[in-house]
Design a binder for these strands. Structure first.
Length: 184
DNA sequence: GTCAAGATTAGT
DNA sequence: CTAATCTTGACG
């Protein structure tokens, strides 16, 4: 899709309000995205694509609008939507959906039964996992990404302000806490 | 082959 | 703050 063929940090906030659709047997769940993070390429030390293509991250270098699902910490899966400018690489991590059991990237994949077998699918053509455009329906907040150790300063986390199912509150750089703040 | 690190979560 | 749990990627 055209709206995904732009720098991933521009696409990530625009995916808020879109629905992740998942078929589970006879049931189809459609849950709005309420929190995302952008992961780019060589300019982003926290991205899986940082050191170039590997068997795992190959979808990030492929066509936009496909899924990138990876396994992490020996027990969780994370769902991404491939998005990047032409000739670039990148993906948007889906961190939370508007549902009580989807308030975190690992938790939403557990709830929707998403694992690596669903990686590299066309998210506009798959009968099992797909996306539908939508609107945020609220103010979009921006902040620092969660759970990374490199490129910590990039403000590439986006969420719907005030939504109950966002995985965490705002994250700030240690340097901006000031010297009078709580000890760390 | 070996090994350290990891886009997380639940519990102390 | 730490344990759980195992895949991945780098090195050789």
């Amino acid at each position: 899709m055209d709206s995904l063929s732009k720098p991933v940090w521009e696409v990530a906030p625009r995916l808020l309000g879109w629905r992740v659709c998942r078929r589970l047997g006879d049931t189809v769940l459609k849950l709005p995205i309420v929190e995302t993070e952008a992961y780019a390429s060589s300019e982003d030390g926290a991205s899986h694509a940082w050191r170039g293509p590997t068997p795992r991250n190959r979808p990030m270098f492929g066509p936009v609008g496909r899924s990138y699902v990876y396994f992490i910490y020996g027990m969780y899966h994370c769902l991404n939507v491939v998005a990047h400018a032409p000739e670039a690489a990148g993906a948007v991590l889906i961190r939370a959906l508007d549902h009580g059991q989807c308030n975190g990237p690992g938790k939403l994949c557990r709830f929707l039964q998403i694992d690596r077998e669903l990686t590299d699918l066309d998210l506009f053509a798959s009968p099992d996992l797909w996306l539908e455009p939508g609107e945020p329906g609220g103010e979009v907040a921006t902040g620092l990404r969660v759970g990374i150790r490199k490129s910590v300063e990039l403000p590439w986390r986006f969420w719907i302000a005030g939504n109950r199912h966002v995985s965490r509150g705002p994250v700030v750089l240690p340097s901006s806490l000031g010297e009078g703040g709580p000890g760390g």
